[in-house]
Amino acid sequence: MIKRFLLFFIPLILFIGIGLILESGKIKIGYKDFNENISFEKNKVFSTKGLLALDSTSINFELFKDKTTLLQFSFNGCGPCKRAKQLFPNLLDNSPKNFQIITLSIDNYNFWKKDNFDKERWTKINIGDSELKNSLKITEYPTYFIINEDGKIISRPNNGIAAIRSLYQITPSTNINLIKESIGELKYTNRFWNFIFMYASMYSVLFAIILLFIFLVKLTQRKIRKSKIANN
């Protein structure tokens, strides 16, 4: 009984593991992705008008001086935004010291106070109902911009994290980290259990086909043996 149990579940775990490896392969492609939405904002100097820090003080242009900046437009209830924030620390640890991330939130100040984190080169700014999001045509979240050392917008990438990884040639340190990242992606997009169910179902069908094949082979062999005995 135990052998039959192991015969089914050990290959099942390996099968799901193969699925995770395939899923992590999709994540790995993103490390070389610099697709962008070319738009009217490109090469314009980014305006800091209306930007407020957590203490409600105005943000001046010095924040962007001599730095490459990834701007993320976000809000508290945005799932993909939260997923991206989970990846920001690793992105900062593997990028040059003149690179920074600035998250711009349309939430009010009270929402920001609940979201507590402390990471060097990562600044959180409240824009509320600022005209900034309208002037930059922000219609979906997260929206990303990359700003160069001169304060000019050089890109509006579809995926800010993938774009920075590509820009600085950041690669995953190990395949295990890739698998962990793919699991995190599945969880944050609420696809993890669907993924497990899908691969378990595929494996069960495959396992049933193999058992049926073995049964038919044995049945054929039995008929051949009976035929030989009858002929003798």
Rank of each mutant, 00 (worst) to 15 (best):
K65F: 03
P80I: 09
W112C: 12
V45M: 05
G151H: 02
E140Q: 11
K152G: 00
S95V: 11
D107I: 00
K113G: 07
N37E: 13
G79Q: 12
G79K: 13
D33R: 06
F64Y: 07
D33F: 01
T123W: 03
D33S: 00
E149M: 06
N60E: 06
N159W: 00
S105E: 11
F40G: 09
P80D: 10
K119W: 00
G151S: 11
A53F: 10
L87P: 07
R121D: 09
E41Y: 09
I29V: 08
K97R: 12
N98E: 14
S56C: 06
K49H: 10
D150E: 12
N126D: 03
L104F: 14
P157A: 10
F99Y: 14
F145C: 07
Q86G: 01
I125T: 07
G30P: 02
F46M: 04
Q86T: 13
K119L: 08
S56T: 02
A163W: 10
T57N: 04
D107T: 12
Y31I: 02
C81Q: 11
I147N: 08
I101V: 15
E140C: 04
E36I: 06
F88Y: 15
S95F: 08
L52Y: 03
D118G: 00
T48E: 05
T48D: 13
N98Y: 13
K133Q: 15
L104Y: 08
L104T: 10
L92F: 04
F40W: 08
T69L: 09
S58W: 00
E131I: 12
E36C: 07
G160R: 00
